[in-house]
Write a protein that binds this DNA or RNA. Structure first.
Lengths: 190, 190
DNA sequence: AGTTAAAAGTGACCTAAATCACTTTTCAAT
DNA sequence: ATTGAAAAGTGATTTAGGTCACTTTTAACT
């Protein structure tokens, strides 16, 4: 556990500096969680008590439409944060599913604890500010790609941007992330 | 000018509390800017020195594809923040255009000043953290809507969510925001 | 190792929405 | 008020990608 906490500290310190004292305070607000492949981190309609930092593993966040079709909002792996941010922030029942594509481990942060460490340790507020800003920028890019690019070039772009992800994830899920049918993706390129 | 700064203070204080002293420090890091309809706030390839809080007016942020087609990333009006966040954050040349759909006024915050007030005044770091988080959540919603909904239901959804916006913006721009052609949008609904 | 299930590929056909071309309406600027 | 330019509407046609049905390949789990 010490090792994993060390990883989390490094993750913070890539962006802000923390004293040992601050870090001790911060780390005490996280809980550990471990799940096997196919288990759910978040389910539609269920409370969303945490946001999760992924120590190891891989998850998908998705919603299911009326026709039962899955639409992938996000893949998240080591070093990523994941949650149903909307439900978490508003403390409402889950609006999406998050489940594990591989056995995974998480550090869990409750809303109360997040606000506590942010208001207690300014560096942490800045950490989440900057992270959140990066996330925002990434989503803007993705929106632009959905508006401006064809399905095929979105695929090429993703292959280029996250080649390791593609190897860990079935193509039908990549298709669902790109907003294309499995069959159409299969007819692309290479 | 005092009036407008008061509005900005209120905007901060909707989320965090600031002492008069803190506020005086914070406000001194903003510059005022005023533009007429059709003028550019940000242009492709030009430096992006600021992010902007809109005092009054309305702008569109968009990119133009190879075929010269415009794709709208964001509309922003009173009380909204707008920039080319990617270029601003990385201090690189603009990747998009932002121009005014109406005469508009802005408070401008440079990256240096933003970081300064965030690290000097923790409440400000928390303000931007929370704002950024809300922005992230909104973009996730928009991505889901692009993945799961038909063009027509995205339109209905927007009509419902931002009715006043639709009245201030030509439909062809709404179409471009929704990722639908002008002609197709025109054939919808009502 | 053998069995079962999931993933991926592929052809035939269908459909939502794009594109093109033109008209009508609305708005903005003298 | 008049003129010119955007904006909006509409028909005809095209197209990217979806859907359905089936086969082949790969991987997961006793």
């Amino acid at each position: 556990m010490e090792d994993q906490l060390q990883l989390l500290r490094q993750h913070f310190e890539e962006i802000v500096s923390l004293t040992d004292e601050e870090w001790n305070f911060v780390q005490s607000h996280f809980e550990f969680k471990s799940l096997k492949k196919h288990q759910f981190l978040i389910q539609l309609g269920q409370p969303v008590d945490f946001e999760y930092w992924i120590i190891k593993g891989l998850v998908k966040a998705y919603s299911i439409d009326e026709k039962g079709k899955e639409h992938i909002l996000q893949f998240a792996m080591e070093n990523y944060w994941v949650s149903d941010h909307y439900a978490f922030q508003h403390q409402e029942p889950g609006t999406i599913f998050v489940d594990c594509l591989e056995d995974s481990e998480f550090f869990c942060l409750s809303l109360e604890n997040r606000e506590k460490i942010c208001f207690e340790v300014p560096a942490v507020a800045n950490f989440f500010r900057i992270k959140s800003n990066h996330g925002y920028i990434n989503l803007q890019q993705r929106i632009l790609s959905l508006l401006t690019m064809t399905a095929e070039s979105r695929y090429e772009y993703l292959l280029n941007k996250l080649p390791k992800l593609i190897q860990r994830v079935p193509k039908k899920l990549i298709a669902s992330y790109l907003g294309v049918s499995r069959e159409t993706l299969s007819r692309f390129n290479s």
